[in-house]
Simulated assay, not measured.
Amino acid sequence: MVLVAHGSRDPRAAEATRALARAVSAARPGVDVWPSWLDHTEPGPTEVLRALAVAGHRRAVLVPLLLTAAYHRRVDIPAAVAAATRSGPPLAVRVTDVLGPADGSVDAALLAGLRRRLGEVCPGRFDALVLAAAGTRDARARGSVGRVADALGVEFGVPCRVSYASAAPPGAGVAVSRLRAAGARRVAVAGYFLAPGLFHDAVAESARAAGAVAVSAPLTDAPEVADLVLRRVDDRSGRVVAPAG
C-alpha cells in the first residue's frame, strides 16, 4: 500500500503523513504501508512504486491522501503511476478514490474524524461552524467541500459555512465574521486538513482574530482517518488500474 500526500516545505506535514502510515499499518497487520509525497519531500510515488517492482512485488494499491479530487488527483498522480509502470519489472497499480467525497457521499469516518478534532478543542456548545479547507480553483472540488460542510452542519445541528486558505473566497476570518454578524455567538472552525502547515496556521490566526471560539487541528493520524484509508483500499468500485509493464 502506497500513501501519496501533497507534500509541504513544513516538516510537520511529512511527519503527519508518516504517522498516518504507521496507524494504517497497525490497523492492517501484514501489509506494508509506504508514505510518499508529490512535492517537497522524498520519496515520490514513482520512486516507491519502482522500488516495489524491483523488490518483486507485482501489485500495489495507491491511496491519494487528498480531500478533493482536483488537479493532483486528476493529473499528477496518474502521471506518477504511468512513469513508474512504463519500464522495469511489471507492476499493476490500483489507484483509489481520494479521502474526501468522490461519488457525492460523505464517508462517516471522515465526519467522525472531524468531530473528534472539534471535540478536542471545543467540548462545549457552539452555534455555528466554519469548515476551513486549503482551497482550489476546481469548482467540482469546491462542491465536494460544500457537501462535507452540509453534512457536518447536519451532524451538529448548526449552520456550517465553507472557507478557504487560498484560491477561492471567503477566508476563514471572513466566514467567521459573517456568521457572527448574522447572530452567532460561538463560532467554531473545523480544520479540513490532513496535515499541519502554513495554510492551517493562517486559518487559525485569522479565525481567532475574527472571534472564533476554537479551531480544530488537522486530521493527521486520527483513527478514523486510518479507517477511511482502509475503506478506500477495500472499495474496488471505480478503480483505475495502471497497465503492468
Rank of each mutant, 00 (worst) to 15 (best):
Ala80Lys: 00
Asp107Arg: 09
Arg22Asn: 05
Val121Thr: 11
Val54Arg: 10
Asp76Arg: 02
Ala108Tyr: 08
Pro45Met: 00
Asp97Lys: 11
Val106Ala: 04
Ala84Gly: 13
Glu42Arg: 03
Leu52Arg: 07
Gly183Tyr: 06
Thr68Gly: 06
Phe156Tyr: 14
Leu62Thr: 10
Ala184Asn: 08
Ala134Ser: 04
Val213Trp: 12
Gly113Gln: 12
His200Arg: 05
Val95Lys: 08
Leu110Tyr: 13
Gly238Cys: 10
Arg28Leu: 13
Gly153Phe: 00
Ala82Leu: 11
Val98Met: 15
Val98Glu: 08
Val215Gly: 05
His57Lys: 03
Pro45Asp: 06
Pro64Tyr: 01
Ala83Asn: 13
Ser25His: 08
Val130Ala: 03
Val203Met: 14
Leu179Val: 11
Ala109Gly: 12
Asp76Glu: 05
Arg142Leu: 02
His200Phe: 14
Val162Ile: 03
Arg28Asn: 11
Gly146Ile: 10
Val24Tyr: 00
Phe193Gln: 07
Ala151Val: 10
Gly173Met: 03
Asp76Asn: 00
Gly173Arg: 06
Ser163Pro: 03
Gly104Val: 15
Asp103Gln: 10
Asp76Ala: 02
Ala172Trp: 01
Leu65Gln: 06
Val2Tyr: 13
Pro29His: 13
Gly56Lys: 15
Ala182Lys: 04
Ala5Arg: 06
Arg22Ala: 13
Ala207His: 05
Leu65Lys: 02
Ala70Asp: 07
Trp37Lys: 06
Ala109Pro: 12
Gly119Leu: 08
Val213Cys: 10
Ser36Thr: 00
Leu129Val: 14
Phe126Lys: 01
Gly197Ser: 05
Ala109Glu: 08
Arg59Ser: 15
Ala188Thr: 09
Leu110Arg: 05
Ser166Arg: 14
Thr17Gln: 13
Ala204Tyr: 07
His6Glu: 03
Pro11Tyr: 14
Cys160His: 05
Ala14Pro: 09
Pro169Phe: 04
Ala202Val: 05
Gly88Tyr: 02
Val130Thr: 11
Ala14Val: 05
Val48Asn: 04
Val95Gly: 07
Glu224Gln: 10
Gly30Asn: 10
Ala182Pro: 15
Arg116Val: 11
Ala133Leu: 05
Ala207Glu: 03
Arg185Lys: 15
Phe199Gln: 15
Ala5Val: 01
Ala165Cys: 05
Ala16Ser: 10
Ala55Leu: 12
Leu38Lys: 00
Arg9Thr: 03
Ala132Asn: 05
Thr96Ala: 00
Ala190Arg: 12
Asp97Met: 11
Tyr71Gln: 01
Ala188Met: 04
Pro170Cys: 11
Ser206Asp: 10
Val241Met: 01
Val241Arg: 09
Asp150Gly: 13
Phe193Leu: 05
Ala108Asp: 15
Val33Ile: 08
Trp34Lys: 12
His6Ser: 02
Val24Gly: 02
Val61Pro: 01
Glu42Ala: 12
Leu66Ser: 08
Gly171Met: 01
Ala214Pro: 08
Arg178Phe: 15
Val75Arg: 03
Arg137Phe: 15
Tyr164Cys: 07
